[in-house]
C-alpha cells in the first residue's frame, strides 16, 4: 500500500542555512505518527513543507503516492491533507459557527459559489453542527472566535482542521499551553476525530506522544535520527542521547 505521506531527501535552506537536511519520512495509511524533537529542530518547518506553506529547496513530498511538493497549500488541501497551527489561526471576527462552516464549504463542493444562499445548504449545516458538537462548542456557536478562551480556540482550531474531511491530518502542538485536564480532553478529542485517518502530530508533551502515537520519528537539527514504535524509540540510545536525555528533568 502506498504511504499516506512520504518525504524523500527533502532539504530546506534559508540562504546558506540548512534548516531541514536530507529528511526522509514515511507515514503509512491510517497510522498515528508523532514527530518529536528539541526546540528549533525543524518540526514546524517540516509541517510547512508537507502542507505547501513553504516549498522544499530540493527533494520531493508525496501524498498518497502523488508528488505534491511545489503545489500551493489550497491545492494540497483539496487533495485531502489538512493541518492545524501551533499558534491559533482562526477567523477571529467571525463566529464559531462561521469559522467551521467556512472550513466545510470547499469540501462540500460549494467553492466560490455566489448564486447559492449559504444558509440553505442542508449538508453544510448538518456537517457544521456535527463538527461543533464534536468539539463541544455548540453552546458557543454565535460567539466571535476572537472572544473564545484559549482552550476553546485550540478546540476550534482542531475543528476547522478536520471540518473539510481530509484523510491526512497534521496537528501542530494541539495541546500546547493547555492545563492537564484540558490536555486529556484534547487528546480524547483528537483520538475520536481522527479515527480511521492518517494523523501526524508534533507534540512536546511526552505523555500525549506515547499515549497516542503508533510510530514516532525523532527530528534533531532538521534530520530524522530515529523512527519506530514508541517502544523502539524509548530504547534507542541515539534518541536517549540527543533528545530524551536532555528532556529528562
Amino acid at each position: 500500500m502506498t504511504a499516506a505521506i512520504e518525504l524523500n531527501a527533502v532539504e530546506k535552506r534559508f540562504g546558506n542555512v540548512g534548516i531541514i537536511r536530507d529528511l526522509n519520512l514515511s507515514v503509512a495509511q491510517g497510522e498515528r505518527h508523532a514527530i518529536i524533537g528539541p526546540n528549533g529542530a525543524g518540526k514546524s518547518t517540516t509541517f510547512n513543507l508537507i502542507s505547501g506553506h513553504i516549498r522544499p529547496s530540493s527533494g520531493e513530498v508525496r501524498l498518497n503516492g502523488d508528488v505534491i511538493s511545489g503545489l500551493g497549500p489550497f491545492e494540497i488541501n483539496r487533495r485531502g491533507l489538512s493541518r492545524s497551527f501551533q499558534v491559533t489561526n482562526v477567523f477571529s471576527r467571525m463566529s464559531v459557527w462561521e469559522n467551521v462552516r467556512c472550513a466545510v464549504l470547499w469540501a462540500t463542493g460549494h467553492r466560490y459559489a455566489f448564486w447559492k444562499n449559504v444558509d440553505s445548504l442542508p449538508e453544510v449545516r448538518e456537517r457544521t453542527s456535527q463538527i461543533l458538537d464534536d468539539i463541544h462548542l455548540t453552546h458557543r456557536r454565535d460567539v466571535p472566535a476572537g472572544l473564545l478562551t484559549y482552550a476553546e480556540q485550540r478546540e476550534l482550531e482542531i475543528g476547522i482542521t478536520i471540518a473539510g474531511g481530509a484523510n491526512v491530518v497534521l496537528l501542530d502542538e494541539p495541546t500546547a499551553g493547555m492545563s492537564h485536564a484540558e490536555t486529556d480532553r484534547a487528546v480524547a478529542l483528537i483520538r475520536r476525530l481522527t479515527e480511521g485517518k492518517t494523523l501526524v502530530i508534533v507534540e512536546h508533551d511526552m505523555s500525549v506522544v506515547f499515549g497516542l502515537a503508533d510510530r514516532i520519528s525523532v527530528l534533531v537539527y532538521g534530520h530524522i535520527i530515529a523512527s519506530g514504535t514508541p517502544e523502539e524509540i524509548r530504547r534507542d540510545p541515539k534518541v536517549k542521547e540527543a533528545y530524551l536525555g536532555e528532556e529528562a528533568h
Binding site: 505547501g52 489550497f74 489561526n89 477567523f91 469540501a107 471540518a163 473539510g164
Partner: peptide, 13 residues
C-alpha cells in the same frame, strides 16, 4: 479579510 493565510488551508485560493 480576517485571515488570508488560514483560508489556503481550507481549500481556498
Amino acid at each position: 479579510r480576517d485571515n488570508p493565510e488560514r483560508v489556503q488551508f481550507i481549500g481556498y485560493d
